[in-house]
Write a protein that binds this DNA or RNA. Structure first.
Length: 323
DNA sequence: AGCCAGGACGGAT
DNA sequence: ATCCGTCCTGGC
């Protein structure tokens, strides 16, 4: 059991976003299964989230709407840490937040491109300014994708919690206790048998391989960011344990490619119902229809539909856990 | 008890 | 190119 680290407040960082910007639903996605890596406080509309900087610096963030503080679109981030931070460190934190939440992306071309599709206008009105969020690095998002594979969300949550409580760091700041994601080395130094005890099943082997890859290949994520999407997809699928499903998650979330979406079991049902009025249409048909309506913005449109559904029906979380 | 769902792989076709 | 058995766990 790792000791809890107390973090002290270092400073604040105001990060502007290209308008329109929806703070709440950019930093907080109701459809995402909860982990103790972050905590969204509904009452104060504040997002707490941890981040690792290099080997030994741990960051705790407390993020709020920049509009409240300065009347501008963006994020006001209070930064907590276990170490003294240099100017360069702060720049890295700022860049991470900006990229993770797509603050510099202009999403108006998306709205324009789907203006003729009636079915998406409600979600766009309700969530206007929402972007894809991916606070994870490539290693982390691939671990999460692996745990989403071939199982139910309920079990994914269990696997995440088991792995985080065994290998993750623990921090305490501003009255919140959160985990910090483990590093590739933390896993690589462990063993497949140990992972199996944490109920990750046959994934143990894959998780171990991914961890070993990333403990050698530290900048794979950055390399993929400057590649063509199709080449990046190929590179991702060279990693054992990463197939089309996981690659798509990484492409959509981490690389921010706007047309990627997996019509997995529960999304297939939702979109089948949405397009055809019944839950039973097959994946290929659902995918064809989505492509037809939303073209290259298929992933983004899907995100708006799903998040809107979860915002309006909080009980969706419980429905999905069974799927 | 046995059977199934959920991705990825690897071997067979 | 497509199909099939296998990996693992929890739920029926």
């Amino acid at each position: 059991m790792k000791r809890t680290k107390k973090l002290q407040k270092v400073c604040e960082l105001g990060l502007e976003a290209v308008p329109p910007f929806n703070f709440k639903y950019t930093v907080y996605k109701p459809s995402h299964f909860p982990t103790k890596l972050e905590d969204f406080d509904e009452a104060s509309e504040t997002m707490y989230r941890t981040l690792r900087l290099g080997q030994d610096k741990i960051i705790g963030l407390k993020m709020a709407d920049l509009r409240k503080a300065r009347g501008k679109d963006g994020i006001m981030a209070e930064i907590f840490s276990n170490r003294k931070l240099t100017e360069q460190d702060l720049q890295m934190v700022g860049r991470h937040i900006s990229y993770a939440y797509g603050l510099n992306e202009d999403i108006r071309p998306f709205y324009k491109s789907v203006a003729n599709d009636h079915s998406i206008q409600g979600p766009i009105q309700n969530l206007r300014g929402m972007r894809v969020s991916c606070f994870e690095n490539l290693f982390e998002i691939l671990i999460i994708s692996s745990m989403l594979q071939n199982t139910t969300v309920k079990r994914t949550e269990q696997m995440m919690e088991n792995m985080l409580s065994s290998f993750g760091g623990r921090v305490d700041y501003d009255g919140k206790q959160l985990y910090v994601f483990y590093t590739p080395k933390d896993i690589a130094q462990s063993s497949e048998e140990r992972l199996r005890e944490l109920k990750v099943g046959y994934r143990a082997k894959f998780l171990m391989e991914i961890a070993k890859q990333f403990s050698i290949n530290l900048d794979l994520g950055e390399r993929l960011k400057i590649m063509e999407f199709e080449n990046a997809k190929e590179e991702l699928m060279k990693i054992r344990g990463v197939g089309p499903y996981s690659a798509r998650i990484a492409l959509f979330q981490y690389l921010r490619r706007p047309n990627e979406i997996n019509f997995d079991s529960w999304k297939r049902k939702i979109f089948s119902k949405c397009f055809f009025g019944n839950e039973n249409e097959e994946v290929a048909k659902v995918e064809r229809e989505a492509k037809q309506r939303w073209g290259d913005w298929m992933g983004y449109a899907g995100l708006y539909v799903i998040e809107d559904l979860f915002v309006r029906n909080p009980e969706m979380q419980y429905w999905r856990k069974k799927e």
